[in-house]
Amino acid sequence: MIINHPLLGPRDAQEFTYLGDASLIDRPDWEAADAQEQFYEYAYLRDNPAGEHRELWFHEIGDRSWLVVTRNTLTHEITSVEMARDVARSKGRSK
């Protein structure tokens, strides 16, 4: 697989390590009344879809940035690559 890094251009997927579903960006509020339940779902449960999947990749042997890659889990086709930082900020996070 080739991941088209927004800053560095096409890079071999071997340079990256994989974390998982991009929903891991949405860390629950630890002060919420149901924080325990929310963290259980956050830590353990996954949609694990067959088809389009937004996921976190870390450019470990590169610029060490986190990317949100949209990839089809049936074909391995990558349709979009974003900086995870930008995705997080667009959701109102500070970084």
Partner: peptide, 18 residues
Amino acid sequence: GSSSRLMAKAGMRLPIES
């Protein structure tokens, strides 16, 4: 291998990735 796909039809999310 396909547990998440099948159980999603019953509305379940699993502690599993394929």
